[in-house]
Amino acid sequence: MKTAALILATFLITALNAQQTLKIRYNYINHAKPNTYMMELQAQNNQVLSYTIRLTKVGAGKNIRYKQTADSTRLFKDYTNEYLIYEESLGRDNLVIEEQLNLFKWNTTNDRDTILEYPCKTAFAEFRGREYKALYTTDLPFTAAPWKIHGLPGVVLKVTTTDDVLSYTAETIEISDAEGLLYRPFDHKEPINYNDFCKKYKDYRKEVIKIRKQRARQQNRPEPENNKAPRVEIIIPENRFILNEN
C-alpha cells in the first residue's frame, strides 16, 4: 500500500509539474486615461492571472522611451469555482473586491477574423455602461481572457468597446511547461463584494469633489464643472446608479 501511495504521489507531482502555462501580452489602450499601457496574462489549470502595467514616457524627441511604473493592477480568475478577485485603489486605500463569474452575457455572430494566425469568432456583450466586442479562438487548449472579460469558450485575443474607449489586442502568445501553481496574489486578503465597493467609491468621489471645490474657492478660480471619474465601468450596484443618489 505504501508503495502504491508513493507511486500515486509521484505521478501527481509529475502531472502538476507537467502542466502548461499560457502567456499572452496585450497592447492595452484606454482613451479615458492619457497613458500608455500593456497587459500580461497567465493561464493555467482553469485559472487566469492578468495584470495591467502603466508605461510612462521618459525623454524627448528621438530619445523618448517608456519607463515601467509599479502601479500595475492585478486580477485573478478561477473558472472552476466561478469567481474573480481584483484590486482597486481609492486614494491611498487599496481594496480587494470579489465577484462571481456571471457578469457577461454574450451574443455570438457569424463574423470571423484572424489574430496572430489564430482563427477567431466574434461576440458582443453589454457590461456596466458599455458594449464590448470580443474576438476569441478555440484553437488554444485554455479558457482565458484579459481583465474581467469571461464567459466565452477558448481564449480571447482582442477586446474593444464599441465607443472606442478601451481595447486589448494580443501581441504575443507563448505556451510553456509550468513549474508549480499559478501565483494567487490575494490568498491572504479579505475581499469585499462589489456593492460594498460601490458605496465606498461613492463616498470617495464625494470627498474628492468637495476638496476640489474648496481648493477652487481658496485659489479664487471657477469650481470644476466635470466631476465624473474617467472609469471604464459605470458604478452600478444591483443595477442602480448610486452615484446619482442624494
Rank of each mutant, 00 (worst) to 15 (best):
Y51S: 12
N27D: 15
P222Y: 02
N239H: 09
R205F: 00
R184G: 00
W106T: 03
L166H: 06
P237L: 09
D187S: 13
R205S: 09
N94F: 05
K189W: 06
L182T: 01
K77S: 10
N17G: 03
T21I: 09
P141M: 05
V208L: 11
I97S: 06
E40C: 05
L182P: 00
R240S: 14
K2A: 07
K199A: 14
D164F: 13
E225K: 14
F142Y: 10
G91W: 03
I242C: 00
F197Q: 07
V155W: 02
A32W: 01
T80K: 14
E40S: 08
T3E: 11
T3Y: 09
L135K: 14
I85G: 10
A123I: 06
N94A: 09
G129S: 05
A70R: 07
D203P: 04
T109P: 08
T69F: 01
G154E: 01
I175N: 05
L243C: 08
L12C: 04
D78M: 04
Q219D: 11
A60F: 13
A123S: 09
K213V: 06
A32T: 04
E99K: 15
I242M: 00
D139Q: 13
D164L: 13
I85E: 12
V159H: 04
P153Q: 01
T161K: 02
P224D: 01
F127A: 03
Y51L: 08
P34H: 04
T162R: 05
L55S: 04
D93E: 15
K67Y: 12
R92M: 15
N27F: 08
D113F: 07
F76E: 04
Q47A: 12
N45C: 05
E131G: 07
I24V: 09
A9F: 15
A145K: 02
L75N: 07
V155R: 02
H150K: 05
Q19S: 13
L55W: 05
E179S: 12
L6V: 13
T21M: 11
R215K: 12
Y194I: 03
V58P: 06
Y194T: 00
E98L: 15
T10H: 08
F241H: 14
V232R: 10
A15M: 12
N193Y: 09
K77P: 06
K189A: 10
A144D: 00
I234P: 00
N110V: 11
K158V: 06
K23R: 13
N110Y: 09
T143D: 06
R240F: 15
V165H: 08
R231Y: 13
P119M: 02
K206Y: 08
E99Y: 04
P141E: 10
I7F: 08
Q19D: 11
T10L: 15
N227G: 15
A170Q: 08
D111E: 12
I234F: 10
P153L: 01
G129P: 03
R205G: 01
L95C: 03
C198V: 06
L90E: 07
I24S: 01
V159Y: 04
R65T: 12
T161H: 00
G180D: 04
A125T: 10
T56K: 09
Q214T: 10
A18L: 03
F76D: 02
Y51V: 10
L55T: 02
P222W: 02
L8T: 03
P222K: 03
L22G: 01
Y79W: 03
T109H: 05
D203A: 15
L12M: 11
V48M: 04
E82G: 00
A9V: 12
K77R: 11
K202A: 14
K210D: 12
E174Y: 07
N17E: 11
V159F: 10
L103Y: 06
